[in-house]
């Protein structure tokens, strides 16, 4: 009789489904599936495809012809490729000026004066304007005959300079146009960063006699590190996708001197006269490898950050 007192445990309970049993392990993956799927289809697969196409000669219409590494070989002694690569590097270096410029404007605007919000939004305006419009405005500004720049230079007895028509100035001219909205973007990042600066630390530093540059460099800037990191990331990304400004302002000209790699790729593969998919893909691969350096660096520093906490 005593045996009846102990109920048989497992058989009586309803059998839990496979999902219920593995819920903790499976659920995160379920949530991740859509993202992974899209990431595979729109990012990973095209990358592999680019590598693949870069080994072919293909006009995008007819038959592909396998040519091995000859596209890369041709890139190796293509002067237009080196011009684009050089311009890409100039873009990467000079575009970073947006970070200190943004920081100083942010420091300048970080005060309580009547109507400061209006000034802040005025400074932020260039970022709200579409890149295409920025490009157009600067094209008119640089116009060799009617442009404002040459009118101003004329007053001081200089010029005229055809910024966008001269191969020596053209890239710098476009970068200047790009810096305008990019500085505004960095400024807004730093303005939010400055809100989070600990007033007590500033007070303590002041008691210890820190002021001016020392205060900025040793007390304020370290506290702005997250903002600096983001500003760095968006500026590098901005420099690498400078396509729209170039397309609007010079169309890669004069005689191809303002091209960057992304524009060159578009030109040889997809534009009106471009029928060289393989060659374009080879340029894309080179651009990808350059980006990979930065991506690796970003991932590494984020990883380090997370481990530190």
């Amino acid at each position: 009789m005593t045996t009846t007192a102990v109920p048989p445990t497992s058989p009586d309970q309803p059998r839990r489904s496979w999902y219920k049993r593995n819920e903790i392990g499976v659920t995160p993956w379920l949530f991740l599936i859509p993202a992974i799927l899209f990431f595979l289809v729109y990012v990973i697969f095209p990358i592999i495809q680019s590598f693949n196409i870069s080994a072919y000669q293909w006009d995008g219409l007819g038959e592909k012809e396998y040519v091995g590494l000859s596209n890369y070989q041709e890139l190796w002694d293509d002067p237009a490729f080196y011009t684009s690569l050089k311009n890409n590097l100039i873009w990467l270096v000079l575009y970073l000026l947006a970070i200190p410029a943004g920081l100083f404007i942010a420091l300048f605007l970080n005060q309580t004066v009547t109507g400061i919000r209006i000034y802040k939004s005025l400074f932020f305006f260039p970022f709200v304007i579409s890149q295409v419009v920025v490009g157009l405005v600067f094209t008119w500004f640089y116009d060799p005959t009617f442009g404002l720049l040459n009118s101003i230079l004329g007053v001081v007895g200089l010029g005229p300079v055809n910024v966008l028509g001269d191969p020596t100035y053209v890239t710098y001219g476009i970068i200047a146009a790009g810096l305008w909205p990019q500085t505004a973007y960095c400024m807004i990042l730093y303005l939010t960063g400055l809100n989070a600066v600990d007033p007590e630390q500033v007070e303590a530093a002041r008691l210890d006699g820190a002021k001016g540059w020392k205060m900025l460099w040793y007390v304020i800037v370290p506290q702005l590190k997250p903002a600096t990191f983001i500003a760095f990331v968006v500026t590098i990304v901005g420099a690498l996708r400078s396509f729209d400004l170039i397309s609007i302002m010079t169309n890669g000209g004069p005689f191809g001197e303002s091209r960057v790699l992304s524009f060159y790729m578009f030109e040889v593969a997809l534009s009106e006269y471009g029928f060289r998919m393989g060659y374009g893909a080879a340029i894309a691969v080179v651009l990808f490898l350059i980006m990979l350096c930065f991506i690796a660096y970003f991932l590494y520093s984020m990883y380090k950050e997370e481990r530190g906490h």
């Binding site: 005689f255 030109e267 006269y273």
Partner: peptide, 22 residues
């Protein structure tokens, strides 16, 4: 020019022509 010459040649050549003019 850009209809008589093959597209690729036209592109490269016209860039050269512009450079020559400047």
């Amino acid at each position: 020019f850009d209809r008589d010459f093959p597209a690729e040649m036209a592109k490269v050549a016209m860039e050269g022509l512009q450079e020559f003019m400047v």
